[in-house]
Amino acid sequence: LGFSPSLKWQQQQVGNFSDIRQSVNKHRQLWQTKTLDDNVIMPKIDDEEGWKRFCLGENVCLNTAQTDSGEPGVDYIKMGFPPFLSIVSKLNQATVSAVLEYLINWFEEREFVPQLGRWLYALLACLEKPLLPEAHSLIRQLARRCSTVRANLESKDDERLSALNLLICLVARYFEQNDLADK
């Protein structure tokens, strides 16, 4: 009680997310044609470790200490590449599903980090409906894991709470896994 979001907030997020997905579709072709910077080397679809490092960064994946250069987000190799439209627009549905699976598997055994939230949101925004059975199972696993992590939070001020609530909301309400929804 007090940790889960109101119905009104959930409905707003579903509406906004639906708009975002439409815009992604509308602009996908434009962004697909953009040339990526030389340092952006996307892993092959079956390179699980490569994708985890690409999205979350070496600091998180290799458990190395984070160095604060004072310029956040500059070192993408260490901090992970953000889900820029020019990157996610180049992912086909098979890759979207595969990366989603890699990141959800990673989250099963580790703590939530901000990069993870951004990537999961971006991948869900690119995941086409109707979902394949594997995708159903995958996103349900994500919502359950978010619920478990949320249940262990000690404070409502925890930075992770809003991100966890958002992901649960989108899986349950946008992708219609209603039994997992916060009432």
Binding site: W9, I20, S23, F84, L85, V88, G117, A125, A163, N165
Partner: peptide, 30 residues
């Protein structure tokens, strides 16, 4: 003229990241 350029300006390379950050921030305010 058509409104297309305005839309493109708003919908930049970081649009998904901004949308996520906005959604997360909205819970903190709610």
């Amino acid at each position: 003229g058509t409104g297309q350029s305005d839309d493109s300006d708003i919908w930049d390379d970081t649009a998904l990241i901004k949308a996520y950050d906005k959604a997360v921030a909205s819970f903190k305010k709610s």
